[in-house]
Design a protein around this nucleic acid. Structure first.
Length: 467
RNA sequence: GGCGAGGUAGCUCAGCUGGUUAGAGCGUCGGAUUCAUAAUCCGGAGGUCGGGGGAUCGUGCCCCCCUCUCGCUACCA
């Protein structure tokens, strides 16, 4: 079936899977979940078939490491945060059709099958390389889990990937007196074999698909980032890791290794869709395989390469899958002038907000939408939060609605009068534009420029009775 | 360091392929009003469009240099 951009048969909307090493904060909401939810709600209200898909991302070395440090199992970590995240989304009112977990069987099987199929088709290459190894903990180390003295500035607690003191990018092997953050052992180099996805093989299709067909409809930050990757020349990317936490590599020689979390996470969108379809008695396949489906990935700007280059390459290699029509990556939200940070505990956590501001979901939704970081990083301040609530939601919009009710009761005995009387009131040019301004806006991405209209609209409404 | 995206009124943002006095919402100042006055309506003031060069009859928008922020550059996600 031919794809009709303006009238797709159904929509598959995904929101980045939250990583379960911490709760959800306002930055996640502003950049991903609130815009995705607005889009999904709008499409449903206008009669579209929508699958709004999400779930917890529960694998990866960061969770494994966190568990080790806290002396608990990875399972305990993911259960804890999946619980908090799941509950806070529910209470906040993000209307996912399904919220799954990448630790579930359905996801392990889906991902495993995906890997096997690519493996059998010869879509991977195998390479043996030398990696840093902690012989005490018996574990390979990612660069960030090695600390030592920075060779450039002498800072004694530089990470293997970057020195936070002087900001320079490092290789873990450059550090003076390197040691593992797990056991304090001195890392050694050890050989290991991994499977790589040769992105260079997919360069031609990515070039055409992104650089040519999405030059004008993708956001500049997304397009620019993709172009940068493609122009630099794509390289093979490892899709397996030496780790005991994750989805086991399902082919010969993969013992003791797991799939790279970024290989399995996006496939989580697919398994979550399957889970939903099973529960609802639907067929999941059209949502991922039919050309008349429109798929949109909502993500933060740090995820662009995975959703625009790597995942599409995986889908394309597999065959039979559609690719996203758009990937509206948002920028980041700061809090009172500083970067949000889970590890530094600098954030407004959603579950805490819900406790401290009961029944005030809409206030936060409004503030985060009005202040959405669509083209650049924005700053959330409590002062602004207060001002938007008091001045805009309560004073302008709230008063307008209240006034409509008061006047309707007072002059029309509570019954909405016949609209024909409006013809006496003169210029209604603005009213005629309302459908364009309010009904159509979320059809295009991003949503920028739509929010001030709630105030304009209220002002217009306030003027009417005096005419 | 390399690459990408940003730096437009006090705040949050628009500004199409360069073309009359750079726009909106909120805030601010002044006036009006009553069905909402811990509100609303009307009007005004506020920008050398990050800085410096250049090309052009003419640029916020093009070219060069510099600067600040964030992201990617890594086996963190």
């Amino acid at each position: 079936m031919a794809k009709d951009q303006h009238n797709p048969a159904r929509y598959t909307i995904t929101a980045a899977l939250p990583y379960t090493n911490g709760p959800i904060h306002i930055g996640h909401l502003a950049g991903v979940y609130v815009p995705a939810d607005i889009y999904a709600r709008y499409l449903r209200l206008t009669g579209n078939d929508v699958a709004f898909i999400c779930g917890s991302d529960e694998h990866g070395v960061a969770i494994s490491m966190k568990a080790k440090k806290e002396g608990v199992t990875p399972k305990e970590i993911i259960d804890k945060y999946d619980g908090i995240i799941r509950k806070s989304f529910e209470e906040f009112g993000i209307t996912f059709n399904n919220y799954s977990r990448t630790s579930r069987d359905i996801h392990h099987k889906t991902t495993s099958d995906f890997f096997k199929k690519l493996y059998e088709q010869g879509d991977f290459i195998e390479k043996t390389t030398e990696q840093l190894y902690d012989s005490e903990a018996k574990q390979f180390l990612a660069d960030r889990f090695v600390v030592g003295t920075c060779p450039k500035c002498g800072h004694e607690e530089a990470y293997g990937d970057q020195c936070e003191n002087c900001g320079s990018t490092l290789n873990a092997t450059d550090l003076i007196n390197p040691k593992s953050t797990i056991s304090n052992a001195v890392p050694t180099l050890k050989e290991t074999k991994h499977w790589f996805l040769p992105l260079d093989r997919h360069e031609d299709f990515l070039k055409e698909w992104i650089l040519e067909s999405h030059k004008s409809d993708w956001k500049p930050n997304v397009y620019g980032q993709c172009k940068s990757w493609i122009d630099d020349g794509l390289k093979p990317r490892a899709v397996t890791r030496d780790l005991d936490w994750g989805i086991p590599v399902p082919v010969e020689g993969g013992e003791g290794k797991v799939l790279y979390v970024w290989f399995d996470a996006p496939i989580g969108y697919i398994s979550s869709t399957k889970e939903w379809a099973e529960r609802e008695g639907k067929d999941w396949e059209p949502y991922w395989k039919s050309e008349d489906t429109k798929m949109v990935h909502f993500i933060g700007k740090d995820n662009i390469v995975f959703h625009c280059i790597i995942f599409p390459a995986i889908l394309k290699a597999h065959g039979g899958y559609i690719l996203p029509d758009n990937v509206p990556a948002n920028e980041f939200l700061n809090l009172e002038g500083n970067k949000l940070s889970t590890s530094k505990n600098w954030a407004v956590w959603l579950h805490e907000y819900l406790q401290e501001f009961p029944d005030m979901q809409d206030v936060l939704r409004y503030t985060l939408t009005a202040n959405a970081p669509e083209t650049k990083d924005n700053d959330f301040t409590w002062k602004d939060f207060q001002a938007r609530n008091n001045n805009e939601l309560v004073a302008i919009f709230g008063n307008f609605i209240n006034r409509v009710v008061v006047l309707t009761n007072k002059y029309y005995e509570g019954v909405i009068p016949n609209p024909s009387e409006f013809s006496k009131v003169g210029d209604f040019g603005y009213a005629k534009k309302i459908p364009d301004n309010y009904i159509k806006f979320p059809r295009t991405l991003p949503f920028s420029g739509s929010w001030p209209k709630i105030n304009e609209f209220s002002t217009f409404g306030q003027q009417v009775p005096s005419r």
